[in-house]
Structures are given as C-alpha cells and as structure tokens.
Design a protein around this nucleic acid. Structure first.
Length: 293
DNA sequence: GTCCATGTTCTTTA
DNA sequence: CTAAAGAACATGGA
C-alpha cells in the first residue's frame, strides 16, 4: 500500500501519539523482521529511550531516540502502525509492540506494528543514517536532479521512477499517475526524454504527490493511517487501476500493460510513445547485428 | 485450486 | 557494468 503519500500520512497521524513519549519496554519483537548488526539487541537498545523525532525519508518512517540513535520502519505492502490501549485485542501478525510511557490520566498505550505479508522491515540505523543509495526526495527535488538521474539510464521511464535510487518514495500507483499527468508514455526511454518533458515530469510528480497527501493517500485494499482512517485519493486516480475506463482528458480507454513485472496504466492517446524503442524490422533477420565491430 | 496485489532484493541471463 | 526477466519473500482476497 504505502507509497510516499501514505507513509507521510502515517507519520503525520502517528507523530502526536508518540513524540516525546518514553518506550517503557519492548513487549514483543519478531526477530526476522529486524535488520541490525547481529550483536545488537534491539529490544534492549530501545527500552527506556524516549522518542524524540518522527520523520519520513522515501517510504521509510524514521524514529529518532534520545540517545541520538535512530531506526526506521518500512511498511512493505501491508504494514500498519497504530497506537492502542494496552488492553485492546491484539491483531494477528503483530511483529512489534512497544509499551509507551503513561500520560497523566490516560490508559496505558502501545505502539504496534503489524504486517501480515511481512514484506516490511524494522532497521536499526545507529547514529548516522545511511542515505547513500536513496534518490532525492521528490517534493524537494529540482528538475536538474531528476534530469541527471534519468540521463544515466536507458531503462523505460516507468522502471527508472520505480527505482528508489532515482527518486525516493514513488511506487506503482504514483508513477503511473505522475506519467499520466506529465503525458509521458511509461515505455519512453528515461535518457531520451526532452528537457521539457523532464521539467513537466518533475512538476507532475510534485502535483500528484501533494494532491495525494492532501487526500491522505490511496486506500486500495487495507491501507489506513495511524488512526485507522482510510485514504481518499483512490477516487481521484486518473490512470492507475482504470483499465478500460475513459481517460479523464480525452475519453480514450486507459490501457494496462506489464512493465518491469508491474501493472502499468496509461492513456495511449495522451501519452504517445514518440521515439520507438526498437526499430521496426519487417524483413527477417538477414542483417547481422554482430557483424560490425 | 487459480491469479493478483500499494515493495524490495536476489539470481539468472544477455 | 547495465539491465531485463523471473523468482523469491508471505498472506489474503477475488
């Protein structure tokens, strides 16, 4: 579920529930969801610490704690974070439970992380987070940054934008929506986009993400924010999951193809593929490609 | 039983 | 090295 707008919404809704609260103890921690140095006991590291910061980086939710260490939770496909009374019934597939310090006059609460599909992750960052392999934040990105990244790859733009090293935070929904908004075909070669197209794409990514955040993300199946509330942006999707439905701009039916193994939705009329990826070769293979050189 | 899914990473192949 | 294709991870819904 969670791409940048959903993760941002979780951070926004979770922050007031956990910031400046103490992790009294780690009640439950499923070890195989954790990435950390083998000698590090995450439960021991967290016990007694105060949560001093909550932020989003790409699709990661970064928790800062009062000893200057940090860890992040990645929600994967089905991860959810919630703050619930300690006596609230425990959902299946809960992999992390933190007892939070009591607030005056309130029932004791727990921060809970559940993830049925277990594609999520809890990763220890220590005191210097590792950002090296992550692309720029799309909402703060300049056209030149995106252009530089795209100039270095011959892949289809759809594949390039799905790569978190190119841009951090986009996923299948928002790549399709951004390409639709920018009128760029998903199979267009990343390094062959014009500078005007890259500029338009940069703006479209920001426009789409900001709108999605404004509507608290997209709920297709089971995404909810930290308060259990679903998003509303799925109603405003213009391409994603709209195969066969009329393009909101020109009424041409939206097409679905598979790119990089993922469903990809676009308007064949609004998003023309100008430069063909392969030269059309009608004659059978009489010309050798390896002869030259 | 089948196919598909909002994510990431690894392997194989070219 | 680049990158495409496929599989893998684990679960649930249609």
């Amino acid at each position: 579920m969670p791409e940048l707008p959903e993760v941002q919404t979780v951070v926004t809704t979770l922050a007031p529930r956990v910031l400046r609260r103490r992790i009294v103890r780690v009640v439950h921690l499923r070890g195989d969801m954790v990435t950390a140095p083998p000698e590090l006991d995450l439960a021991r590291q967290l016990a007694g610490r105060k949560i001093t910061g909550l932020a989003r980086r790409g699709k990661r939710i970064v928790f800062s704690i009062d000893d200057d260490n940090a860890f992040f939770i990645h929600l994967g496909m089905t991860g959810r974070l919630s703050v619930e009374p300690t006596d609230a019934p425990l959902a299946n597939h809960t992999h992390l439970i933190l007892d939070l310090g009591k607030d005056a006059g309130r029932a004791p609460e727990q921060l809970r992380f559940r993830d049925p599909r277990r594609f999520g992750e809890i990763r220890w960052l220590g005191c210097d987070g590792c950002d090296q392999n992550m692309g720029p934040e799309p909402l703060a990105m300049r056209t030149a940054q995106l252009a530089e990244k795209l100039s270095r790859t011959t892949r289809a733009i759809k594949n390039a934008l799905m790569d978190q090293r190119v841009v951090a935070g986009l996923g299948n929904i928002y790549v399709d929506e951004s390409l639709f908004d920018a009128r760029i075909h998903p199979l267009a070669r990343a390094d062959k986009l014009s500078s005007e197209q890259v500029a338009a794409l940069t703006k479209s990514i920001k426009r789409v993400l900001n709108r999605a955040i404004h509507h608290r993300g997209s709920t297709l199946r089971d995404y909810v924010d930290a308060n259990g509330k679903a998003g509303a942006f799925q109603r405003l999707h213009r391409a994603y999951d709209r195969e066969g439905k009329p393009c909101p701009r020109c009424k041409t039916p939206i097409e679905r193809i598979i790119v990089g193994g993922r469903s990809t939705h676009f308007c064949p009329s609004c998003q023309p593929l100008r430069g063909r990826r392969r030269p059309p070769r009608r004659t059978s293979a009489s010309t050798s490609t390896s002869a030259a050189g």
